[in-house]
């Protein structure tokens, strides 16, 4: 056996925890460097958003904290918003669902009570509680204008139609919940809804539906909004129920009126 006296001496002299200490020191060093560099680059950008956050915190304390808690920790009346993200806040407030008018099975769409600027401030403030989906950029949204509508239709029927109806006219869920009609939702709202999965809706993250597919789905919904009913009155696009209602009232009424007219005695 060949002896290695130097290596043996080193091994004896070193404390067993020394390698761990080295790693910790190195990590701390990297963190310190990162913090300095990052703070330097972010400082200019955050000064504008800091005022947003301040403004948002005021609005939050006035309009949201009574249910969601002063630190967004949640209460018996509302869930925690830690990690909810800006996109979620923007969706809920811009569609008027939040603040709630009254507790119920589900928050309803109504005219928003905050301005777009205020909503952005609220979203920025809630985003500081923890990382969550950010509001999609204009570039992310606008891609729908050139997206493949037919492919979007296929994706829509696979992922959305079972709740929102194949034509996007909405449908009932359990216990008073429902999938709303999509005919009033803007492309941004649809994108945010897919990102954040509001209420009963599942989250369609970028792993399950990449940006391009989200844009295709939006393109299909926009096409449904434009679709001008080649067959005439749409009867709410609710399917055979409203068709049945129509034939039993207007249809039958018209033919019976004709029958009464024909069968009327001439006096």
């Amino acid at each position: 056996m060949i002896k290695r006296p130097f290596a043996a001496a080193m091994a004896r002299r070193r404390h067993p925890l020394a390698p761990l200490l080295v790693i910790v020191v190195a990590l701390l060093g990297i963190a310190a460097v990162y913090a300095v560099v990052n703070a330097a680059t972010a400082k200019a950008a955050t000064s504008a958003s800091e005022t947003m956050v301040t403004k948002g915190s005021k609005l939050f304390a006035e309009g949201c904290a009574s249910c969601h808690g002063l630190n967004a920790e949640g209460s018996s009346d509302g869930p925690s918003l830690v990690g909810a993200g800006a996109a979620s806040v923007h969706f809920q407030v811009a569609t008027g669902r939040m603040p709630l008018a009254a507790p119920g099975a589900q928050a309803m769409r109504k005219p928003p009570i905050y301005t777009e600027e205020e909503i952005q401030a609220l979203a920025a403030y809630v985003a500081t509680f923890g990382p969550g989906p950010a509001i999609p950029s204009a570039a992310q949204i606008d891609g729908w204008k050139t997206a493949d509508i037919a492919r979007g239709g296929e994706l829509f029927r696979v992922n959305c139609a079972q709740c929102h109806h194949a034509a996007g006219s909405g449908g009932a869920l359990t216990n008073g919940k429902y999938a709303p009609s999509l005919m009033k939702a803007s492309p941004l709202e649809i994108y945010e809804a897919m990102l954040t999965g509001p209420q009963s809706m599942p989250v369609f993250g970028d792993a399950s539906l990449p940006m391009e597919e989200k844009q295709q789905i939006i393109a299909y919904i926009e096409e449904m909004k434009r679709n001008n009913n080649p067959g005439g009155l749409s009867l709410g696009r609710l399917g055979p129920v409203t068709e049945g209602l129509f034939i039993w009232t207007i249809g039958l009424g018209a033919v019976i009126a004709a029958a009464v007219w024909i069968g009327a005695k001439v006096r």
């Binding site: 029927r157 139609a161 055979p240």
Partner: peptide, 15 residues
Amino acid sequence: LYGPYMPDQVTSGAQ
């Protein structure tokens, strides 16, 4: 509006 039938698809309000 309903699209083609695919066994893995269904629409709400199917009547």
